[in-house]
Design a protein around this nucleic acid. Structure first.
Lengths: 327, 327
DNA sequence: TTGTAAGCGTTATCAG
DNA sequence: CTGATAACGCTTACAA
């Protein structure tokens, strides 16, 4: 391992000078900067973060908090962890931050792990990649630690300087998607959800309602692709409906399967979902969906933590991906 | 932040003694151990890893290598990243290892990031959570670094002490699943795949073939739920087929959709997949599938790296989850 | 069995 | 502008 002393020696300067060059201090002459940088290159030097952090009492680590293992809702609510994480990691790598992970089997275990991470003085910046109501883990971090926190997802708690959010504008997305269907010529659009008590589904529903204006609302609650009867009844009671906005792609696909099973043609109804999941692209007819850009969500969350900023609530754009399921 | 000096002072010993107690050295008397531990408890002390690692020139960090962002195949091949990662993190947290992440937009960027991590002397243990043929990133780590590596997935390269694997026995799983269908009374089982050049699909196919023994093989290549014609033709040419083993749940679901579209009853054919994906449970009829225990895969990978062991190839058990799609 | 002191690689303070 | 020196928190010879 080559250290900053080696660099200094080769460049014929003192370690402190070399250190200053490393940080591009403006109290160093261009001449020596050149010399030192040359030496760094020759020795293929890269600084030791452990030592840097120890000396600085700083730390360039951010912790990603994953949902606990058995938290099915949190896990399935958000099929984009990987992409969010990739976004976070990309930004952090660029900015020379290390990314560490924390999770556990249970809330208690996760809290213990987070405490350890935070007490060791290693990490005082966390990104929660899930968002859920009354999360004891989140509450703990807020109350018992000094850590700065970003949540990716819908805010359940109050937004503060120490608890900031990166999210999509789900209300707007719901509105946009519904309007898109209306513009495509569909007359009566229904909203399909699985659990309205989830903020995301609720937000998208608000947007849907908003887009309808004078038009009548049609609501269908669908939890699996088993519920053929339920859908048949719905179609009978709501014969005017000619399109569906589903709260997510999975729900949309369940509906699609049921419609097929009911013997309806592929394009009998307009159908659109959210999240632009892989499976939605491959299904027949391929599903129009709202891309929510999870990668960008992750990037923004990481940026918020790695730079001075006043923002504490940040919205990431969405995009409607038009496919065959909407005429 | 409370340091080991604080502990030592409170316990009335020297820092080195306190340090020794921290590591349960056997050259310290039980009496002083007790005193020191008491002090640690009182002060709620926990050691600073940065300092420990710096002093030790050791490092208790392992790096998880994610596929690069645009590597769709690697990403969709493996819908279990999150669970694998949770397994890894759980074990590492228990054993006081930190987990760090690396990824990038491109192979080059990822390689740069890994080099940095490794040169800084921070990390010399990596877990690749994806496995792919001729991966330049993997090759780089093998050839240019001293790092120990574990790959979760099918080995593409030679297994060595420095490149170890944790995987399922996919051949056996293919065999087991096919045999299960045969035992259920299905007579002629077909294998459905999307790309046989992927080791996983190929392995499962080998197992399928193995289970058939005297029986005839039937192969169907299906890439999306669009291909209604293709399936109709297949059924015509292979009228004796009464069940399908699909290379994964997604493929199974595509087939299920097409069969429905062809007007066939839900249980006209037996159908089973692999991976026990969420969507397979919710689909109608719910899908029999092989659970491959990704969480355990992650745990085993982490164990391999955090304890002395001679094993360099480890198989994790699979389980057939029986649902409605197989009578 | 315990304490002293040097050192891990870096940075910050203070002199020059 | 640059260089010595002490310090970050911990470990480990070496000494006692």
């Amino acid at each position: 391992m080559t250290t900053i002393r080696d660099v200094a020696k080769l460049a014929g300067v003192s370690p402190s000078t070399a250190s200053r060059v490393l940080h591009d201090s403006d109290m160093i002459s261009e001449a020596t900067k050149k010399k030192v940088r040359q030496a760094m290159k020759e020795l293929d030097y890269s600084p030791n973060y452990l030592a840097q952090n120890l000396a600085n009492k700083s730390n360039n680590m951010i912790g990603i908090v994953l949902p606990v293992r058995h938290d099915q809702p949190a896990l399935s609510n958000n099929p984009f962890f990987m992409q969010i994480i990739q976004g976070i990691v990309t930004v952090c790598n660029q900015r020379n931050y290390m990314v560490s992970l924390a999770t556990g089997q249970t809330d208690e275990e996760l809290i213990t792990n987070l405490t350890t991470l935070s007490k060791q003085g290693q990490i005082n910046k966390f990104i929660f990649v899930y968002s859920k109501e009354n999360d004891p883990v989140f509450d703990y971090v807020q109350k018992r630690t000094e850590a700065e926190t970003i949540v990716v997802g819908s805010p359940y708690a109050k937004v503060t300087k120490r608890a900031r959010y990166v999210n999509n504008d789900n209300v707007q997305a719901g509105k946009d998607l519904t309007n898109y269907l209306l513009k495509r010529g569909y007359q009566e659009v229904a909203y399909v959800y699985s659990n309205l008590s989830e903020v995301v589904q609720e937000d998208r529903y608000m947007g849907y309602k908003d887009a309808l204006k004078a038009k009548a609302e049609h609501l269908l609650c669908l939890e699996s692709s088993d519920q053929t009867e339920l859908v048949a009844n719905f179609l009978e009671t709501n014969p005017e409906v000619d399109a569906f906005v589903a709260c997510d792609d999975m729900t949309a696909i369940f509906l699609q399967q049921i419609l097929t099973r009911l013997g309806l043609a592929a394009n009998a109804y307009g159908l659109a979902g959210f999240n632009n999941s892989l499976i939605g692209q491959l299904v027949h007819p391929s599903l129009t969906s709202v891309e929510i850009h999870p990668y960008e969500l992750g990037m923004e969350a990481a940026k918020l933590l790695t730079q001075a900023t006043t923002k504490n609530y940040l919205l990431v754009e969405h995009t409607i991906i038009k496919r065959d399921s909407t005429k």
